[in-house]
Amino acid sequence: MTPAHTTDDAPNARIEISGVTKRFLTPAGDVFTAIKDVSFTVEPGQFCAVVGPTGCGKSTTLSLVSGLDRPSEGTVAVGGRPVDGIAEGVSFMFQADALLPWKTVLGNVALGPTFRGTAKREAESTARDWLRRVGLAGFEDRHPHQLSGGMRKRVAMAAALINEPRILLMDEPFGALDVQTKAIMQTELLGLWEQLRPSVLFITHDLEEAVALADRVVVMTSGPGSVKAVYDIDLPRPRGAVQDIRFQPEFLALHRQIWESLREEVERAYAKTAGVSS
C-alpha cells in the first residue's frame, strides 16, 4: 500500500506550537497554569512523542492541538492555519476506549466513513479491511464488552486509521495494557504508521515506548510544563518488533541520555506532590 499523503499534502500535516501558555480557573477561583511558553514543531509525517512527569501538561498540549481547547497565550497551527476547532483529517486515540458499547466491532470502525457520507456498504467493506489489518477478521459481529483489552485497542486503532488521517493524536493509548500486549500493539502501530505516514503526536509516561516508536522525543518540565529538551531519535526505519528494538545498543544509549534529563523533572514533580522541600 502506498502512503496516504503525498508531498503535495505534506505541509497540511505540520503541527506548530509557538509560545503557548494555558491557564485554568480552579474551583476555588485561583488561576492554575498548566503549561507555560511551550514551543515545538511536528514535521509532516513525523512521529513525535512527548514525555514528562505527571501533571506537566502533556494532555493539555494535546487538547490544544486537537482543537478541543484553546490556548491562553501563543498559537497552535496545523498546516499553517491557527487551530480554532476540530480540524478535518485529524484522528484521535485516547487511553480510554472510545468505542460505542451498543455497536458491533464492525459498526464502530465504520463510523468514520459513515459520518463523512460514505455509503453503508462501502464503509463496512473498508472497515472489514481495516479489521483484517489489525488482526480482528472474524470478530466483526462482536461487541466491545466481548473483547479483551488488547482487542479493544485494535478496534480503536482501526477506527482511528480508517480515515487515513494526516494527523494522529494519541494520549497514552496503551497505558492500561499489560507489558506483553503493549509491546505487540506498539509493533502493530509502527507497521500501520509506516503504511500511512500521518504526523503523530504521542503522549506517554513510558520513556522506553517513546524512544522505540518516535522520530523525535520532547521532554517537558514539571508543572507548569514547558519544553526542557528535544531529542532526535536516529534509529533506522522500519524498526521491526519493539521487543527487539529495546535491546539495541543505540536504543539503550538514547534511553540513558534522555532519562538523565527526564529524571530531574520526575523527582521535582514528586517532591512537590509529597511536600518535600528541594
Rank of each mutant, 00 (worst) to 15 (best):
T114N: 03
R116Q: 14
R116C: 05
G117H: 06
A119M: 03
K120D: 13
A123D: 06
E124Y: 05
T126G: 04
T126K: 14
T126I: 04
A127P: 09
R128T: 13
W130D: 13
W130Y: 15
R132C: 09
V134W: 01
V134H: 02
G135P: 02
L136H: 08
G138D: 12
E140A: 12
E140H: 08
D141I: 00
D141G: 11
R142Q: 14
H143W: 06
H143V: 04
P144E: 10
P144F: 03
G150F: 05
R152P: 08
R152T: 07
K153E: 11
K153I: 00
R154K: 13
R154S: 12
V155Y: 00
A156N: 13
M157W: 02
A158G: 08
A159W: 00
L161G: 12
N163F: 00
E164Y: 03
R166P: 04
R166K: 15
R166T: 09
I167E: 12
M170T: 07
M170C: 14
D171Q: 10
P173W: 06
A176C: 07
A176I: 06
Q180C: 01
Q180H: 11
K182S: 13
Q186Y: 02
Q186C: 07
T187W: 03
T187R: 04
E188P: 05
L189S: 10
L190M: 14
L190D: 11
L190F: 05
L192W: 04
W193N: 10
E194Q: 15
Q195G: 02
Q195I: 09
L196P: 01
S199Y: 03
V200Y: 03
L201H: 05
L201P: 08
H205L: 09
D206F: 01
E208C: 02
